[in-house]
Design a protein around this nucleic acid. Structure first.
Length: 644
RNA sequence: GCCGGUGUAGCUCAGCUGGCAGAGCGAAUCCUUCGUAAGGAUUAGGCCGAGGGUUCAAAUCCCUCCACCGGCUCCA
């Protein structure tokens, strides 16, 4: 038998006999590792330790010390769930049950389940874990497998055999006690390895994610090696719930969504509008510096425009249409056609380009009802929308400028960025040449900026490639963020031109970009990221003055005037509460700075400063404090840091 | 849009197999003028999401809508 070579994670080659499995490879490396092997990875894909390796494969061994071990464990937990389910609900049919980032799920059918059923299933799972059944990989022939699922019958498993496993003659099953499941693995050695688990949720899913297919019941759960890991998970979930922007948004007077005024149509309260204004000013500052010209377009256009732009053909289902004197109008779902129309009102020289327009443009998209949720999915939202028109040779420089600004935004809020380059999809417009040029320019920008990015082949828009940015917030959650999109379609449809050096007409490239994405979604991310403890410059109420008694009200008002003159947002707590109560309320309202003034301060002309981080200092000169917060605000520091 | 769940006071929630709509917080008024995370008393607040039905009687049972929540699919 001849030998083959596999590539280990450190880059070295290991020679093993042909036909070796991952487990064999592990024993080859060392007997300890061999014994500890749970699963492995071949070319990055998590597989059973019994998987055969081929010449040149990059492989990894997974033990209970590996990051991937948790995925394996959760996959097994899904099986334990399925086993318990079949014990308590013998009529249930299994479909698929993979692991996820958060845990696992199993899609099932044939039973009616609601949340009250879960605890009984959990109890059964407990005993399966306690019994510590060995989990065995069993190979059956294709015929055997088909026969099994034809007799049950289980059309979903048959479907899997005919699609994913179509080329396999040896079908792997995993067996624990009386339970067996068609599954490619991998799994832990026995059910007892699952230290802690919980069924978290029950919902619905479509078979293979297609709404044309059957609706299945999906049970979500999670599993960990230890009870303490599960406790940590629960604590994080609680924390996320506490930070929910819908809860904080109404508690703190930021926004509300009212049943009478309509779904997906947020109403911004004064505190919300203050935050939006600050965000808008910040974007404007960056945009003006980058050479953008503010423009403004109405919320409503004749559908003639939407026919010209292509939205009427491709997007009409998501548009709000109105009949006005027998003429059809549509609320704008995007700002680009308006901006393209402005560009087209005059003739341009190659010297004029790039032309950059931007607008905080409110758009309306009639999304599916079931999608609406807080500020993350709404019908009416505002994009800090910029469109620029440039020559093909300017793409790289322009994209660089945009990315700089987007990165400034991420840095200002201390959000981490994840970047993806989405390339040409199957259905697209524009020549091969221009696509190749555009994609390579985007790539060059990312490479030269030393930006880590994922490639998402075929994920671009039909009119051009794009760079997508995602925010990772303080709790490690990922949110869709701004995008930069090249567009070869709109210039064509609007017959945009400029006169080149050669005195010929040329077509400019259009770039769509936003720094925040939409204000709605960005505000949501900020509320949850900061737990509504906004940096001073963003905080809707920056300072609250707490007089000890009514005797200090006069001094409090003089202080307030002084700070208001410097354009700080200041309130006085003048209710007849105890100081403790006033502090508690200010703390709950997440006000960055509290100024406590009693008779001592009023006489000395000083203040006691307390911040929401529970730091405190007495006898502070007002001027010292003002100088500090001026710089804290200007520099957009996260703070409050006067007392640090 | 699809599946499941939930709608009771401004907020958080009790209210069982039908029989007089409740609590805490908040609000208002009064007392208290207070030194670092909730001072006290009193009062007001509800077409029980909307419409229809069953019943002597419906917050409670049934039907249809609407909204919200958790997912699926889609997206900023």
């Amino acid at each position: 038998m001849s030998d083959i070579a596999v590539v280990l994670p450190d880059g070295s080659n290991l020679t093993v006999p042909e036909g070796s499995t991952l487990e064999d490879v592990a024993y080859e490396i060392g007997p300890g590792l061999g014994r500890d092997t749970v699963a492995g990875k071949i070319e990055g894909e998590l597989v059973d330790k019994a998987a055969a390796v081929s010449d040149g494969d990059r492989i990894e061994i997974v033990t209970d010390q590996s990051d991937e071990y948790l995925d394996v464990l959760r996959h097994s937990a899904a099986h334990v769930f399925a086993q318990a389910l079949l014990r308590t609900h013998p009529d249930a049919q299994l479909t698929i049950g993979p692991w996820t980032d958060e845990g696992f799920y199993y899609d099932i059918t044939g039973v009616e389940l609601d949340e009250s059923d879960l605890s009984a299933i959990e109890t059964e799972m407990e005993s399966i874990v306690e019994e510590d059944y060995e989990i065995e990989r069993v190979i059956r022939s294709r015929e055997e497998a088909i026969e099994k699922y034809e007799s049950e019958p289980n059309p979903y498993k048959l479907d899997i055999l005919e699609t994913e496993a179509a080329d396999e003659e040896e079908i792997s099953f995993y067996v624990q006690a009386e339970f067996e499941d068609l599954c490619k693995g991998p799994h832990v050695a026995s059910t007892g390895k699952i230290g802690a688990f919980e069924l978290t949720n029950i919902s619905a899913a479509f078979w293979r994610g297609d709404e044309e297919n059957d609706t299945l019941t999906r049970v979500y759960g999670t599993a960990f090696e230890s009870e303490s890991d599960l406790e940590t998970f629960r604590a994080q979930r609680e924390e996320a719930k506490e930070r929910d922007h819908r809860k904080l948004g109404s508690e703190l007077g930021i926004f509300s969504i009212n049943e009478t005024t309509g779904p997906g149509l947020p109403l911004y309260h004064p505190h919300g509008k203050r935050i939006l204004n600050e965000l808008s000013d910040f974007a404007e500052e960056l945009n003006l510096e980058a050479g953008y010209e503010p423009v403004e377009t109405p919320h409503l256009f004749r559908t003639e425009l939407w026919k010209k732009s292509g939205h009427y053909d491709n997007y009409v289902d998501d548009m709000f249409l109105l009949d006005v004197n027998d003429e059809e109008y549509g609320l704008k779902p995007m700002n680009c056609p308006g901006h393209a129309t402005i560009f087209n009102q005059q003739s341009w020289s190659y010297r004029d380009l790039p032309v950059r327009y931007y607008e905080d443009g409110k758009v309306y998209r009639k999304e599916q009802r079931g999608e609406l949720s807080g500020l993350s999915r709404v019908w009416a939202f505002t994009i800090d929308d910029g469109h620029l028109f440039c020559r093909p040779d300017q793409i790289e420089q322009e994209i660089n400028l945009i990315i700089d600004n987007i990165m400034t935004v991420f840095e200002t809020f201390e959000l981490d960025a994840e970047v993806a380059l989405a390339t040409r999809p199957e259905k697209s417009v524009g020549s091969d040449e221009i696509w190749e040029q555009a994609e390579s320019q985007l790539e060059a920008v990312l490479e030269s900026g030393n930006i880590d990015y994922d490639l998402e082949p075929g994920d671009g828009a039909f009119y051009g490639p794009k760079i997508d940015f995602a925010f990772t917030d303080a709790l490690g959650r990922k949110w869709d963020g701004p995008t930069v999109q090249l567009d070869f379609n709109m210039p064509d449809r609007f017959e945009l031109t400029y006169t080149g050096e050669d005195n010929e007409e040329h077509q400019p490239v259009m770039i769509h970009r936003a720094l925040y994405g939409s204000y709605e979604r960005f505000l949501m991310v900020l509320i949850e990221h900061f737990n509504a403890k906004f940096p001073l410059w963003l905080a809707p109420e920056q300072i609250r003055i707490l007089p000890i008694s009514d005797d200090e009200l006069g001094y409090a008002y003089r202080l307030k005037n002084e700070l208001t003159e410097k354009e700080f947002r200041v309130d006085i707590e003048d209710r007849s509460w105890t100081l403790g109560r006033k502090i508690r309320e200010a703390q709950d309202d997440r006000v960055p700075y509290m100024l406590i003034v009693g008779s001592n301060e009023a006489e000395a002309g000083t203040i006691s400063v307390r911040d929401r981080k529970e730091q405190e200092q007495q006898d502070v000169e007002v001027e010292t404090f003002v100088q500090h917060i001026l710089s804290e605000r200007t520099e957009k520091r996260l703070g409050p840091d006067f007392l640090d």
